[in-house]
Each structure stands twice: as C-alpha cells, then as structure tokens.
Write a protein that binds this DNA or RNA. Sequence first.
DNA 1: TACCGTATGTTGTATGTCAAAAAACAAGAG
DNA 2: CTCTTGTTTTTTGACATACAACATACGGTA
Lengths: 227, 227
Amino acid sequence: MTAKNDMSMRVQTLPGLREQVAERLRMAIATGRFPAGARLIERELCEMMGVSRTSLREALRELQADGLITLQPNRGLSVSVVSEKTARSIYEVRATLEGLAARLFARSATEEQIKALHESVDHLAQVYDNFSAEAFIAAKTRFYDILLEGAGNEVAAEMLRRIHTRVSQLRVVSLSSEERARQSIRELRDFVSALEDRDEQRAFDICVAHVQAAAKAAMKTISTRED
Amino acid sequence: MTAKNDMSMRVQTLPGLREQVAERLRMAIATGRFPAGARLIERELCEMMGVSRTSLREALRELQADGLITLQPNRGLSVSVVSEKTARSIYEVRATLEGLAARLFARSATEEQIKALHESVDHLAQVYDNFSAEAFIAAKTRFYDILLEGAGNEVAAEMLRRIHTRVSQLRVVSLSSEERARQSIRELRDFVSALEDRDEQRAFDICVAHVQAAAKAAMKTISTRED
DNA sequence: TACCGTATGTTGTATGTCAAAAAACAAGAG
DNA sequence: CTCTTGTTTTTTGACATACAACATACGGTA
C-alpha cells in the first residue's frame, strides 16, 4: 500500500462557499431571524454575507427548491409564509415519512445507533433547561441524524431534513410553551423505548402520534396568528 | 368593475429561462438521453442549450437538489447513478407518499377529479400502443397531476413530482417489457375503481401494491445491469 | 516501467453590464 | 382633493468575462 492510497490523512473536504451561504440562510429562517413574509433583496444579502451575487443566487435556488423562500417573477424573493393548509400538509408528510423512518429504524438499526439515539434524547432534555433556539435546533438535528442514519433510507432522510427546516420555522413561536416541551420529551423517551424493544408497530404509532401532537400545537399558534 | 380587475385577459406568465433549462435537463435525464453516470460539462451544456453559464448553473442547482445529478467538488457533475439500495429507498418513499396521496384523494377529491383521473388512465392505455418515451411520460405526468391535485397536499405533491423524475429514469429500461406494461394498466384501472367507490383503504392497498410491483420490475433490471 | 513536472481542462467565485419589469414618486387634469 | 398619467428608481434576469484552485492528462526522464 502506497501513501497515496492512505485515506486517513485526507484533509477534511471543506464545504464550498455556496453551501455555507445556503446553510446560514436556512438557519436565519429556521430561527426566525428572517421572519415569514420578509422580503429578501439580493444586493442586501450579498453585502450582509460578503459574497458575490453569483454565489448567493445559486444558494437561493437551493432554498427555493426546499420551499423555504418564494419567488415572484421579476418581483423578488420573500420568506415563504406558511398558510394553515400548507402547515397541515407539512405535518401530514412529516408524520408519514417519519413513521416510515421509525419502522425502518426499529427493523434495522444497530445497537450502537439505538444507544446513541437514547443519549441524544438525554442531551435534548438538558437543552430545554437553559434554552436557546440555536442550541435546540442543533440538538434536535443530532437526534434526527441518528434516527435517519439508522433507518438507512437516504432518500427519505433527505426529504425529512428539508421538511425539518420548515417545521423549525413554525416551531419558533409554537414550542416556546413550556407544557408542550415537557410532553414532547416524554414522547421521545417513549419512542426510544419502543425502538429498544424493536417494537416496530409501537414505534410507528408513537412517532405518528408525536408528530400529530406537534402539529396540533403548531396549528394553534398559526390560527391565532392569522386572526 | 374596472378593466384592471378583469383577469380573463391576463397574459400567460411565461416560464423564466432558468426553469426552461431545468425542465429540458430533467427530461433529458428522465428519457435516458443523458444516461446514468454520464459526465455533464458546463461549457458543453451551455453551448447545447444556448444559455449562459450563470443561468445554467442555477438550473443545475435545482436538479442537484432533486438528487438527479451528483456533484463531486472541483471535479464536476454527472448524472446520478442509482445504486440498488438507493432504488429501494426511492420506491419505499414513493409507496409511502403515494399511499398518502391515494388516501387523501379518496377522502376529498371532487367527482370531476375522479372522472378526469379515469379518463387519464384511458389515455395512458392508448399511449402504450404506439409507444414513445416522451408521450408516455407526458401521459403519466397528467395522471399524477390529477391525482395530486385531488389529494390536496401540495407538499407531498412536490416531493412526489421530484421522485417521479428519478423513477422515470429507472423505468426507461425496466418498463419496456410488454408484460409489466399491461399489468400496470390493469392495476391503475383497479385503483381508479377503488377511488370511485371512495374506498380509502382499498385505494391505499392497491396503490402500495402497485408501487411495489413496479419496484420489483425495476430492481430486476437494475441487478442485471450491475452484473 | 515508475516517477515527476508541466500543460490543459474544469469548476468555483467574482465583476461589470444591460434590458425588462415592477414599484415609487411626481405632476397635471378633472 | 382625487384620479390618471408620465417619469425615475429599484430590483431582478441574463450575459460575458476573468481568474484562482483543483484535477487530470501528457510527456519526458531516470
């Protein structure tokens, strides 16, 4: 074996500028820093992030494909404002795909993955205490990454990751209610316990119920918002 | 009422150049004109389609988000080659989401939509006779558009449309088998009849079975391809 | 043959430019 | 004062070009 084929020293493939921009924009929307309906002006974003219009526009196309921002031709972009109907659609899809992931995880995850998932819920519970939107999203992302990795369906994973950003956006307001937060953690623990038992059906049921509960909480804040 | 508010004369909002490019590329991949694994060189594509690199690259980002093309940093793009595992994932997700759409359609589609769906299957059956990849894809797209519209979940619709392109890509080879084509039409007729009865569960079951059958056919050609 | 350096091709990013569309604004007619 | 019309400004859509970073191919040399 020559040194050339020794991958261990390979320098980490740094994310391209475009991806960084896309990621920062995603985060800005997920945390509510760019609120729903806000207009996004290319020139301003360029200055704000210190990149060229070329790179910025390519990044914007990604967010657009995710449904995170809306383009009105010749008028401009704005952060998508999620109607009640769309929100319901989002949660329907999320429940469906997350249910699939739950089944697959229960069926084929390794013991290590189950353990990792358990720990990530512990971590999530801690984050709830001294709260910050960023930390919360990071913790939840970790939980999902483990779940989706264990499920072993990369296509479903990709779709759920996208939806997840939109859900975060909705949750910014909705989950600040302490009640739902506690309950949510309980549901996740229950979920993990079903997975530890490899109980596919129970994991599925809990997962779907969990999403539906989250949907209910979110829908409440949305409908009040629209008054 | 002033003329200003009379929408009937509104000129049709023409699709931007970028979208046209994206659409043509999608089609080229779906029909196998750009086969899986083919390298895509930006300059060549620019010349081929007569657009600037700027526009082209933005279109490419869309296809990339759809998973249709794969980017290796600093190396270039190529048409995604679908592994057996990924193909399975695609069909799993498709079955899940299409099952959801079937349920929703059965639940809430209008009578007109059901009728339109029935007719689109008739049309699809005709297309099978004097076959062409383009005509087939167009007919199938029409069927899906009606189904997804009737289901009334725009988020699921968007995801299924994306997956659909990837499925077309797989099917290019797989569905040329006359057998499967005939059977497929029979399944669709059965599906529509369940919807006409508003039989949610039966529609769901047929839908999932249909996708699984399609998956089986596709997987066969994939595994032979990989020999 | 194996190695090394150079030439070439390709992507990633940045600039500058221009037309077309929309919005904001100003001016004039009723 | 209000409505309409004309003008300016802003913003997007698209293009051409440039150049650095990286990767591959090539060709010469040991």
